[in-house]
Computed example of a mutant assay.
Amino acid sequence: MSLRFPATITKLVHSLVFMSCLSLVESPEIQAVIGNDVILPCHTVFDKNNSKVTWKHSGQIVHTYQYGKDYLTNQHTNFKNRTSLFHDEMTRGNLSLKLTNVTERDAGSYSCEVPEQSKHLITLVVEIQAVIGDDVILPCHTVFDKNNSKVTWKHRDQIVHTYQYGKDYLTNQHTNFKNRTSLFHDEMTRGNLSLKLTNVTERDAGSYSCEVPEHPGHLITLVVEIQAVIGDDVILPCHTVFDKNNSKVTWKHSGQIVHTYQYGKDYLTNQDTNFKNRTSLFHDEMTRGNLSLKLTNVTERDAGSYSCEVPEHPGHNITLVVERKPTKGPVHVTSK
């Protein structure tokens, strides 16, 4: 005896099975520096003339292409005149989005959606760069009532700066930021809630949030840089609480072990060969929390991101920018 189901139930089962086959495809984070352009990747099967693709950012329409042409009527104003697709490559499945002149508002999650295909998710991390010792402005712009609203800047979970009801409120400010932060009070009525941070240190690196109740938060990542010329020595700073005899610190460069110190001595067995005989720590200052790394005879290969990692303490990240020695121009000798 065979069972027969109504057509509506059969269609529903087929739909559920089909939907279960669809999946989310997550790509690695994409970084972009404020003011630069960026390409958010998306590749899938696509019929250029009969299909539709929609890019979204936190529910906002970023860019739509359907039935052979761009359709930007519903595009959010934040993205106006800043987006484009690679039309010549769409028949090969390239639906990547080019976003120009990146701002802090662009940070966050993006989706590339094609009906009946997998949804692609991409996270855009917006960065701003600053050299140790310099000042930097972390941008934030949104609707704001200067006298009746509140804005809080945070670094990880630390309070960086708070403004509420017409004045700064710094009682809960983290000690790392004391006397180093300010807002642009004269421009707040126009929505400028940007933070000025002076005398940047390695501890300042990382993610910042600009939070206003009832408005989407803005995220921006501060990349702290130190510069060195090829052939010179450089000190990469790192300061934190440290028990010299019972703790461990590991310096890494793009996943490679640069230098390890544990239980009272250097441990270099796993050191990457690129750094052999070129690294040292300041042993006499470690009890005072100085875990800075000295790197000698800098090469082009040394450029990039470094992390200073101590278990149970926040890691410190710093980017080494390696520059070539300036070339001397020809010497002109004039005869008298």
Score class of each variant (00 low, 15 high):
Y163N: 01
Y165L: 13
Y165V: 11
G166H: 08
D168A: 14
Y169E: 07
Q173D: 10
Q173S: 09
Q173M: 05
H174S: 11
H174A: 06
H174P: 13
T175V: 09
N176H: 14
F177V: 09
K178T: 12
K178D: 14
K178S: 14
K178I: 07
N179Y: 11
R180P: 13
T181G: 10
T181R: 06
H185Q: 07
E187K: 15
M188I: 01
T189K: 12
T189L: 12
R190P: 14
S194A: 06
L195I: 10
K196D: 12
T198A: 14
T198Y: 12
G206Q: 03
G206T: 01
Y208K: 03
S209D: 08
E211R: 05
E211K: 13
V212I: 05
V212A: 04
P213M: 02
P213Q: 00
E214S: 12
E214H: 12
E214C: 02
H215D: 10
P216F: 06
G217I: 11
G217E: 15
L219Q: 13
L219F: 14
L219S: 15
L219A: 11
I220Y: 15
T221F: 15
V224A: 13
V224H: 09
E225V: 02
A228L: 00
I230D: 01
I230E: 03
G231Y: 00
D232M: 01
D232T: 02
D232K: 04
D232H: 11
C238W: 00
H239K: 05
T240W: 05
T240P: 01
D243R: 05
K244G: 03
S247D: 11
V249F: 00
T250A: 05
W251L: 07
H253S: 12
S254I: 00
G255F: 01
G255Q: 09
G255D: 07
Q256P: 04
H259T: 00
H259F: 03
Q262I: 07
Y263H: 15
Y263N: 09
G264F: 06
G264A: 01
G264Q: 04
D266K: 01
